[in-house]
Structures are given as structure tokens and as C-alpha cells.
């Protein structure tokens, strides 16, 4: 025993059986774990969106170019957005359903952004083009299918959105998201991720 020497360090009864070697083991393992964590961090973080990807995250769109009753689709960083020019009937339908039984209640007005003059422009609806169920891109007026509620229909799992982009039927839990965007003039909007 005496050749190990370290036993002598534990004369105190409360620490019987503990040795300086235990301390060295724990300390060495802690340093090793810290080292592994420090090395793992950059190897995980490199998976995150790179700086150039993060930088390319806005798009300006001239909404006056969207024909009434139709929509255009804009990709920002590969994510689709819908810019729809709604007809008066579609707007009326959206407003009429403001207090209907909704899965994700929201009024049509709350889904519009103010123009520079402080007024809402109900003709132009800007939404995310990603179905809130599993991220398919719903079809709309340009594809000839607007679903049971006149807005969009997701062909993947059958979610129906109304003319305000609110979820009305099917498995999607939430309304089509409204992206961050601002009117930069009477006809231009700037969408950012």
C-alpha cells in the first residue's frame, strides 16, 4: 500500500476511500469534456445559415403589377411568399368570416399592413407561401384550385385556406403566416425574412 502513497492523504474519516488520484481522474475528465465541448461547438455551429445566406433576406416587389384576382409568388432565400390582388368579392368574403368559427382566430384587417398614408390596402394580401402543416406550397388561383374557401388549397395533405389566408379545414394548425413587410411607396413593398 505504502508505495502508492496517496492513501496517506485520506486520514480524515469523512473522506475515507477518496484519494488524490480520484481528484486527478475527475479533473482530467472535466478538462477533456470541456475540450470536447469547445471543439464540438464550431462543428455544430457551421451547420447554421452562413453570413451570405443571412444577408440575402429581403425582396422589393411592385404590387401594382399583380393582376386583380390573381397572385404572384416571390422567393426569398428559397422561401416562397404569395402576393395576392384580391377581388372585392374575395375581400368581402374574408371580412364576412372574421367572426366565424376559426382554428387560428384573426380578423382580415389584422392580417394587413398599413401603407405610407396609414390606411390599409385590403386589395393586396401578402402571406407566406409555406403551408403551416408540413411546409408544402399551397396552390392558388394561378393553378386553378383555391380550395373550399376561395383562398388556397394545399395538395399535400388537404388544408384549405380562405381569402385571408386563414386555415379553415384540414390538418394545418395555423393561418398562413404574414411576413415582415412594409410599403416603401404606394405600390412598392419590401418583404424581409
Amino acid at each position: 500500500m505504502s508505495e502508492h502513497g496517496s492513501k496517506a492523504a485520506t486520514a480524515d474519516a469523512a473522506h475515507a476511500g477518496e484519494t488524490r488520484r480520484d481528484f486527478i481522474h475527475i479533473a482530467a475528465a472535466t478538462v477533456a469534456a470541456g475540450g470536447v465541448a469547445a471543439v464540438a461547438w464550431p462543428f455544430v455551429q457551421q451547420l447554421a445559415p452562413a453570413a451570405d445566406t443571412r444577408a440575402a433576406s429581403t425582396a422589393e416587389v411592385d404590387v401594382s403589377k399583380v393582376p386583380e384576382g390573381s397572385e404572384i409568388r416571390v422567393l426569398i432565400g428559397g422561401l416562397p411568399f404569395f402576393i395576392r390582388h384580391r377581388t372585392p368579392v374575395e375581400i368581402a368574403r374574408a371580412k364576412a368570416d372574421d367572426h366565424a368559427q376559426l382554428r387560428d382566430p384573426a380578423t382580415d384587417d389584422s392580417r394587413l399592413h398599413k401603407m405610407l398614408d396609414g390606411k390599409l390596402n385590403p386589395a393586396i394580401l401578402v402571406t407566406s407561401g409555406t403551408c403551416t402543416h408540413l411546409g408544402c406550397v399551397p396552390v392558388g388561383p394561378a393553378q386553378g384550385n383555391t380550395g373550399d374557401f376561395g383562398g388556397w388549397y394545399c395538395p399535400c395533405h388537404g388544408s384549405h385556406y380562405d381569402t385571408s389566408g386563414r386555415i379553415r379545414k384540414g390538418p394545418a394548425p395555423k393561418n398562413l403566416a404574414i411576413p415582415k413587410y412594409d410599403y416603401t411607396s404606394a405600390t412598392m413593398i419590401k418583404i424581409s425574412l
Binding site: 451547420l47 426569398i76 432565400g77 402543416h133 408540413l134 408544402c136
Partner: peptide, 26 residues
């Protein structure tokens, strides 16, 4: 897109894991 969105459905960590998996917004 469907499968990565499945991962996004996991509470709390889903969105972060999804972004790290895709390496961008889409």
C-alpha cells in the same frame, strides 16, 4: 421540405434543429 418540417414540429428545439439541418431559411 415535408420531412424537415416534421422536425420543425418538435416543441422547443424543433425550429433550431430544422434551421441547422437546412443551413438557411429554406
Amino acid at each position: 421540405a415535408v420531412i424537415t418540417n416534421l422536425i420543425g414540429a418538435i416543441p422547443l428545439v424543433g425550429d433550431t434543429v430544422k434551421t441547422y439541418l437546412m443551413g438557411g431559411p429554406a
